[in-house]
Each structure stands twice: as structure tokens, then as C-alpha cells.
Write a protein that binds this DNA or RNA. Structure first.
Lengths: 112, 112
DNA sequence: CGAATACTGAGCCATAAGGCTAAGTATCAC
DNA sequence: GTGATACTTAGCCTTATGGCTCAGTATTCG
């Protein structure tokens, strides 16, 4: 339960930055290397890498290094966490009291 | 366009904290006062108020003061921003190239 | 009126976020 | 094997975040 909440912390945090959302948009079209991803941004590489690390930490992307090139891929499954949360939230104000609601309500109780 | 992106920044940032998600879950059941909302949390009121201000700033809730009591209400419309973004993201990796995609892709280009 | 209630404002503190530069390592291309 | 390429590591800086206390204001209750 607490894990679900921490997962949401990370995912929402990752999505809260426009650079990272743009990276996800790019990766939506297919895998790409770090330097390809970084090109559109007026930012030093190490700065850009922090965004990549954060995205990877949140589970929204996966990366793999072959030779000197690190390739990034979007991890679609992780987006389901957001949808689940949204559905649960809607369930609340629609007065539905199904299992999904209870799951999320308890997971969030007292900020845990 | 930039406005849409900034709106997302705020909304996702607001959702990245478990206290704030718990507040939204509570408000999903109906309006509540600040002190009612604050009760479940082991936190000083001014600290809690920061979360409320941030939620209000993000547009996810609205508040109104009557007498000495401030009442908070959830703003369902703002959740649509998240759904729109999610849909656009899915559209990308599903290879759809409709207007929604283009809108979001451009809104996020170069982190703007 | 006086006390309790419900915020509100100011300001401090520690950590995290997001940017930078400078230098290092590991491949790959010639 | 030398040089270019593609990261990577380390460390610094500024601002934002999330918590605190202490004191203040505005209502409401008795």
C-alpha cells in the first residue's frame, strides 16, 4: 500500500517537469539515445542526465547501455499507475464505493 | 500552449505529495473545512495550510471563507488536464497522429 | 466583555530540485 | 594508438519544498 503511494510520488514528481514530459513525448515515438533526446534542449548534458535518471527512477522509462550509447525506452505499464489513481479519484466523487476506491483511500490515509 | 504546460506542471506537482492526494481523496466525498481536513495529519496547521494553498494554486481545489471557517471543494474540471495529457501520450505510442497529439507535442517542445 | 476557535502571517531550518562547469572513462573510427 | 564521441562523476550554486514555532487577526460563544 505504502509502495503504491511512493510509486505515485515518483511518477507525479517525474511528470511535473516540462523537460521530462517532452522526453516522454519523444519516446512515445520509439527508443532513442541520450544525446538524441538531449538535442532539443538548451541544457548541459549532465543536467539533462538528471532528468533521465529521475525518469528511470520513477519507472516511466528504462535504459540500457550498449557500447558507449545508452538507449532509452518508454515503460508504458507505469502510466497505468496514474490512470488507476485517476479512476479511483473519480470513483470517490461519483459515490461509488468499490474495491478500487477502498484500496486507494487506505493507501493514502494519513499520507502513507 | 505554454499555459497548458504550466498548468500540468502545477497539477502534477500538487499530486506528487501523499498528503495532498489524501486531501483530494477526502474532498472527493464532499466539501470540508481546513481543520476537518487537517485532523488526520500529524502536522502543524501552518504546514498543512501550505498544502492547501498549493492545491488551490494548482486549481485542483477551490476554497471559500465564511466567518472564521474556510471550506474547501474539489475542482473536478482540473483533473481533465491529466486525462488529456495521458490520452495524448497514449496516442503517441499507438501511432495515432491526430490533433490531440500535435497539440501536446508542440506544447511540450523544448520544454515550453 | 472575555475566552475559545479557526485560521493566518512571518520567518527559520534542512533537504531536494534543477541548473552549471570541469574533469574522467569507455568506445569507436581512422 | 590517437582522436573524437558519448556519456559519467564530482562538486558547486540558487531556488523551491515541506516541515516547524511563535505571534497575530477575526469570529463566535457564554
Amino acid at each position: 500500500m505504502a509502495q503504491y503511494s511512493e510509486q505515485l510520488n515518483g511518477v507525479f514528481q517525474a511528470l511535473a517537469d516540462p523537460t521530462r514530459r517532452a522526453v516522454l513525448a519523444r519516446l512515445g515515438h520509439g527508443p532513442a539515445s541520450i544525446s538524441d533526446l538531449a538535442k532539443p534542449f538548451d541544457m548541459a548534458l549532465p543536467s539533462f542526465m538528471k532528468h533521465i535518471h529521475l525518469l528511470e527512477g520513477s519507472g516511466l522509462i528504462q535504459t540500457r547501455k550498449q557500447g558507449r550509447v545508452r538507449t532509452c525506452v518508454i515503460e508504458k505499464k507505469q502510466f497505468a499507475a496514474v490512470e488507476t489513481w485517476l479512476s479511483a479519484q473519480r470513483a470517490l466523487w461519483e459515490g461509488r464505493t468499490d474495491r478500487l476506491e477502498q484500496f486507494v483511500t487506505k493507501a493514502q490515509a494519513k499520507g502513507d
